[in-house]
């Protein structure tokens, strides 16, 4: 059984993943390669922002310190963020964006499946609702990785480069500590994740990197990348500049 402190920490991990990735996806709005993609990227971002409200809303409730989801999203600094390093990686090109999404979705879907039916009723309910959305995200990002991996020589090269660039951020998703184990240990999900991505990468004609090296420090908040601070500077500008305002 998780203590309230562990629960709060864990809920911030889930909420911050959704918040940071949702923000990254929203950065695309109006700039996608084709109109249909613009709409689809916005859909994913909207789902993730909605999930953020649920996870961080519950986190604030557990904390019981009078904060709400917005206070957690807009008034914490880098060292208090608990998202994976993978999701704070910048968009770079469309290939990186979709590869990041694919790798995250493949973890996210297994995580939410494991959480569905969790003894904590609210966690179970949020997981069940999110799973419907993430099932679609996973299908779409896998299809896109296959199409772009297989498409042209240029797209193949770009997708392989994106995979190689992002691969060192995969391992952190499966590291577990006491906080994870108190709620849901991600380590056993690796097998299903591997099976899922191996099948998609094969169809996409992409080569899975050999290295098992993994950057870590995002979900523990010990060491984020430099990218997160810039994102927060933009995202939190208004509530920070006008702390007394209601919006």
């Amino acid at each position: 059984m998780a203590t309230d402190a562990q629960l709060l920490e864990w809920l911030c991990r889930m909420g911050d993943n959704a918040l940071v990735l949702g923000h990254r996806m929203s950065e695309w709005c109006g700039h996608a390669p084709v109109l249909e993609e613009d709409i689809a990227l916005a859909n994913t971002a909207l789902d993730l922002i909605g999930q953020t409200q649920l996870w961080l809303g519950l986190a604030a409730e557990v904390e019981g310190a009078g904060r709400d989801a917005d206070a957690l999203a807009y008034r914490r600094d880098v060292m208090d963020f608990r998202n994976l390093l993978l999701v704070e990686q910048p968009n770079r090109d469309f290939g990186h964006t979709m590869m990041r999404q694919f790798l995250f979705d493949a973890w996210h879907i297994e995580m939410l499946r494991a959480l569905k039916g969790h003894e904590h009723e609210q966690i179970s309910a949020i997981a069940e609702k999110s799973l419907k959305e993430v099932t679609y995200h996973a299908e779409r990002s896998a299809d896109t990785v296959i199409a772009l991996g297989d498409g042209t020589e240029e797209s193949h090269t770009r997708m392989q480069a994106a995979l190689d660039r992002l691969w060192p951020y995969v391992g952190e998703m499966f590291l577990s500590d006491d906080v994870d184990r108190a709620v849901c240990d991600p380590a056993p999900l690796r097998e299903a994740f591997d099976a899922r991505i191996n099948a998609v990468l094969a169809e996409a004609t992409l080569t899975r990197p050999d290295s098992d090296f993994a950057h870590k420090g995002g979900k523990t908040g010990v060491r984020h990348t430099e990218h997160l601070g810039h994102m927060l500077a933009v995202m939190q500008f208004l509530p920070r500049a006008y702390p007394d305002a209601q919006w």
Binding site: P33, V34, E37, A147, L148, G151
Partner: peptide, 13 residues
């Protein structure tokens, strides 16, 4: 910047 994506989608299809 989206040209390579559109071309790849068509090529894959």
């Amino acid at each position: 910047e989206g040209r390579w994506v559109r071309e790849a989608m068509l090529a894959h299809a």
